[in-house]
């Protein structure tokens, strides 16, 4: 069984390195956000050590930004954790959809794999696979290693050199991830069966965003789940 497993996925190392290489443009965007987060951390009187530890063990950028912003605004740690946690519920859907990648792996690979799962390397893995490339668990890990290294280094740098950090919006870098996700969507599109689920997701996000005071976190989860339910119920191939 063990031997079979190894021979069934020979290119673990080459997937790791291609995951690491392919994540570079996304990692550049992450670095800009890391600097901006470091600036915020410094304003919340966090030092380089705290910033580095936080980036390593939380490793979820948007929730770190919300939580530290809340802490700096004077809410207690409890409320700040809740705000960050709400933003991270999306990660539940991400690791759930990675079940085939984790399945049958030793526990340490599962724990490493779930910790290193983020929007960027997860989306990139799906995009590459949709284009016919071999991209599985080790591709995800390679991307995750690149992202965590860049995230920790840039956030610590931002916290340490707070006064010289550029503002992402002034450079147009706030648009980096919107553009990246548009490119990834292009790769994920694989035919007209996705039309209704995707239209459903867009409609839900637009309606919830325009007509209700719903928090964006919940809008995203509702949009993602709504489209997935449509795909589950409608498509039957």
């Amino acid at each position: 069984m063990a031997i079979q497993n190894i021979s069934a996925r020979p290119p673990a190392f080459s997937q790791l390195t291609s995951g690491l290489r392919d994540i570079l443009p996304l990692a550049a965007g992450v670095a800009v956000y890391g600097l901006a987060f470091g600036l915020l951390a410094a304003q919340a009187s966090m030092d380089g050590l705290q910033t580095g530890v936080m980036g390593t063990i939380v490793f979820a950028g948007s929730s770190q930004i919300i939580a530290v912003e809340r802490l700096a605004a004077g809410t207690g740690a409890g409320a700040a954790i809740l705000a960050g946690l709400a933003l991270n519920l999306r990660l539940l859907l991400i690791t759930a959809s990675l079940r085939d990648e984790y399945s049958g792996r030793p526990w340490w690979q599962v724990l490493l794999g779930v910790h290193l799962a983020t929007d960027e390397n997860w989306a990139l893995m799906h995009a590459m696979r949709a284009r016919g490339h071999q991209a599985g668990y080790w591709y995800l890990i390679g991307g995750g290693i690149g992202l965590i290294a860049v995230w920790v280094l840039s956030t610590v740098a931002g916290a340490s050199f707070a006064s010289t950090v550029p503002e992402p919006k002034a450079l147009g870098m706030d648009f980096a991830f919107t553009a990246a996700f548009i490119a990834i969507l292009r790769s994920l599109w694989n035919g007209s069966t996705m039309l209704l689920p995707w239209a459903g997701s867009v409609a839900i996000v637009l309606l919830a965003g325009l007509l209700t005071p719903m928090d964006p976190t919940w809008t995203l989860i509702l949009g993602g789940l709504g489209g997935a339910v449509l795909a589950g119920v409608l498509n039957d191939d």
Binding site: R90, L93, I94, A96, S97, D119, W122, A123, H126, F181, I184, L185, L188, W189, M194, P197, W198, G200, S201, V202, I204, V205, T219, L220, L222, G223, G224, L225, G226, G227, A228, L230, A231, G232, N235
Partner: peptide
């Protein structure tokens, strides 16, 4: 279908 729907929602 979840990945595409979630990224599109974002």
């Amino acid at each position: 279908a979840l990945p595409g729907c979630l990224i599109l929602s974002l």
